[in-house]
Design a protein around this nucleic acid. Structure first.
Lengths: 151, 151
DNA sequence: CAGTATCCTCGCAGATACTG
DNA sequence: CAGTATCTGCGAGGATACTG
């Protein structure tokens, strides 16, 4: 009678979906990937309710996607773990799929380009260390970040 | 006050998540990819409630992921559209991520191998035509299909 | 077999006020 | 700023009975 949990399924996809299978989780990871680190940052960019955001951040932290870093006298920062970084392969695939098959209401889709070459990125191979931002493989948006996520 | 819909966001990822961002949708696509075509097939394999399954199948059909084929005097069959096939890049990425980062409760994870070479598949490039199953690139499970998804 | 029709429940999510 | 606490409610999702 309770909702089925996928945690214990003998299937990696199912278990993965149990962690990042809801829309907010994936969007949070995406924004973390593109540089957001603070509570209010996620909150403003996504327009998500605070308690829900708390929930998701906690859930992602407990499942090893995010790491919560507290420096004394400073705001806590959320950064992707290596496992979190590797999720980029997933949402980039989804993003590109969406670019192709779910056209935006108006205007052309935003593009992800390499920060240096400005060439469109088709797939990412990430091998980051311990949550540090990537150097050359780092990506940005062709449009300004502000354009990107207007809620 | 209503739940936020991602349909109209200016972001391909968000719009994609609105379509296949819930766990059942992705699992249905996965099973469709691996050969399931009938209502009862999905129902038995996933253990999903019938009305929910009806919902999801309708939703996926309306959004161009599945195609519902009716032959007179025969059961309806659900087959992936080309767009649906291309989703495999997404869930394979997720599946492999899960293999690495969300270890199963007991025993080694199942593996996806090439049907002919039996080599593990790391990434798929699909270029299927009109919903037809793929030929050489088709994949199967190293274990029997029956092992695969025991609900 | 492939759904439709109901009913019911509880989880997710939104809004808001409040705290260190 | 970064949450916590509380209230509220829609609606996803489950169970079951029924139909062509």
């Amino acid at each position: 009678m309770t909702r089925t949990s996928l945690k214990d399924w003998n299937c990696s996809l199912a278990r993965s979906l149990d962690i990042i299978g809801d829309k907010w989780a994936m969007l949070i990871v995406r924004n973390a990937f593109f540089g957001t680190t603070t509570f209010s940052g996620f909150q403003a960019e996504l327009g998500i309710a605070k308690n829900i955001l708390t929930n998701r951040l906690k859930h992602l932290t407990e499942n090893g996607i995010l790491r919560r870093l507290e420096k004394d006298g400073c705001y806590p920062r959320y950064k992707l773990t290596p496992a979190g970084w590797e999720l980029s392969t997933v949402f980039i695939a989804l993003l590109q799929w969406g670019d192709k098959h779910v056209p935006p209401p108006g205007g052309p889709p935003l593009q992800i380009v390499d920060r240096e070459t400005l060439q469109p990125i088709r797939a990412l191979a990430l091998q980051s260390g311990d949550g540090k931002p990537l150097s050359t493989k780092e990506v940005r948006f062709a449009k300004t970040p502000a354009d990107f996520e207007k809620r």
